[in-house]
Design a protein around this nucleic acid. Structure first.
Length: 422
RNA sequence: GUGGGCGUAGCUCAAACGGUUAGAGCGUCUGGUUGUGGCCCAGAAGGCUGGGGGUUCAAGUCCCCUCGCUCACCCCA
């Protein structure tokens, strides 16, 4: 049997209520702030991701789903949410709208990785990006959006971690400081961290190796290397978060896995933090647009994995929305009655009543068994006898007496039976 | 990419030392009621025991390979 590709999932109907709860809660929070939806292609030119993500990142080096199409172009399945939105902003001239342009999306993300708990090759993210305004208040707004979404879902125990990486003009000095600090300790670094010493020293801070972690304690901190504007930005953001009563902790080792970030970076992590447990994260990326050959466009945003939100939702005990109720089951008791049954179902649905319809003539017993398995409160029976007399038998499933109505009155009759019950 | 655990019906699980035709519960369908649900009872359908190879008179069971699931590392959401 052909099976689904590794690391993908079939989302079955019983998952739908929780899924909808997350996406609809997020959409609601977006709309409350004037964030509007955007959708970009599932495939992009590979350069979009390779040029923005950073050569030394794992994502660029080994996790992208890339292929050559029949025309010889290299395309890549969306490996992260931000670059495509920035590309769409530039390509469609959204800088002509009032700034910042506030966008949100719900989209699948593809990364070739070994699957495990909370990690898939195709996962889904809720995300938002605010483009065209460099104010720290925009950072605060974006963080507030994600924080409020979690809160609205009843998830209130995530820790917000915050850091600032500074700007490109101060980055070299900080990078050099890290190299100067770690080089004498190189023999105590694991091989991976030693490689990063030349390729991407900031990412050494992200290492989970206990010995490296210990060395990081005394490592230079990016906050000490911020320029005056970046420092002011960071302080202003902190003040805004405090006035919004959004608790945070500063994590000097928070650097994020993508290279395009500058200044603000943040992550929301659960209290029982395992190693791959980040629920959502993001930051500012004022130089991303330039990496793809566009003008300078400041931006800030986040992505949050829906599957991981769901894991935390279980812990919070929040319950999902009920689905559209089915009120009526229409049962054709003979094949000749199927057409009439479907006509009645349509008439009921036009009035907004949820109806399931049996598709084959079968015994009342099997239809009624099926009807009581559904959530229907009334069964409408149409058999040979009813057809001959132009009536429909209405059987309330709570045990009250069955009644008969003429076909033309069936909709009214069913509605009054439903009304009596409630 | 590295390491551990696990693969028997749609689901949850049985099948002593290798030994007849691989079973049960739940679920599904049908019947018990010539046209009336839930409960109960009965019956049926549903398995190349993940796949391939090997050992053996004999393999769901032992060995090898492979695929998949899962957990952890790594990395990220």
């Amino acid at each position: 049997m052909i099976q689904r590709p590794r690391g993908t999932t079939d989302r079955l109907p019983d998952m739908a209520p929780a899924w909808r709860l997350v996406t609809e809660t997020f959409q609601r929070q977006c709309e409350l702030r004037g964030f509007v939806p955007i959708s970009t292609p599932t495939i992009e030119r590979s350069e979009l991701f390779t040029r923005t993500t950073g050569d030394a990142t794992d994502l660029a080096q080994k996790e992208m789903y890339s292929f050559e199409d029949r025309g010889g172009d290299s395309l890549t399945l969306r490996s992260e949410g931000t670059a495509p939105v920035v590309r769409a902003y530039v390509q469609n001239g959204l800088h002509n709208l009032p700034q910042p342009v506030k966008l949100y999306y719900i989209t699948p993300i593809f990364r070739y990785d070994r699957p495990q708990a909370g990690r898939y090759r195709e996962h889904h993210q809720i995300g938002a990006e605010a483009l065209g305004d460099a104010s720290p208040a925009v950072d605060a707004e974006v963080i507030d959006l994600l924080w409020s979404t979690y809160r609205a879902l009843g998830i209130d125990d995530l820790r917000l971690e915050l850091n600032s990486l500074g700007d490109p003009d101060t980055r070299p000095a900080y990078r050099q400081a890290l190299v100067d600090y770690f080089t004498p300790l190189a023999d105590r670094l694991d091989s991976e961290s030693r490689e990063r010493l030349t390729s991407n020293p900031l990412r050494i801070l992200d290492s989970k190796s206990p010995t490296v972690t210990e060395l990081c304690e005394r490592a230079p901190r990016s906050l000490d290397y911020l320029g005056e504007p970046a420092l002011a930005h960071f302080q202003s953001l902190q003040a805004l978060l405090e006035s919004l009563e959004i608790a945070y902790t500063i994590n000097h080792r928070l650097v994020r896995g993508l290279d395009y970030y500058n200044r603000t970076v943040f992550e929301f992590v659960p209290p029982d933090a395992g190693s791959q447990s980040t629920v959502g994260g993001g930051g500012r990326y004022d130089y991303l647009a330039e990496l793809i050959g566009a003008a300078h466009v400041p931006g800030v945003g986040f992505g949050s994995g829906i599957e991981r939100v769901l894991l935390n939702l279980e812990r919070s005990g929040t319950t999902a929305l009920p689905p559209q109720p089915i009120d009526v089951y229409v049962a054709p008791l003979a094949d000749a009655a199927v057409a009439e049954a479907m006509r009645l179902a349509r008439r009921l649905r036009i009035t907004g009543v949820g109806v399931e319809c049996g598709f084959r003539g079968a015994s009342p017993r099997s239809h009624l068994r099926r009807a009581s398995r559904s959530q229907a409160r009334v069964a409408a029976l149409i058999g040979q006898r009813e057809m001959e007399r132009g009536v429909v038998a209405l059987k309330p499933l709570n045990g009250t007496a069955q009644v008969e109505v003429v076909q033309a009155e069936a909709v009214n009759g069913i509605q009054s039976v439903l009304a009596e019950e409630t």
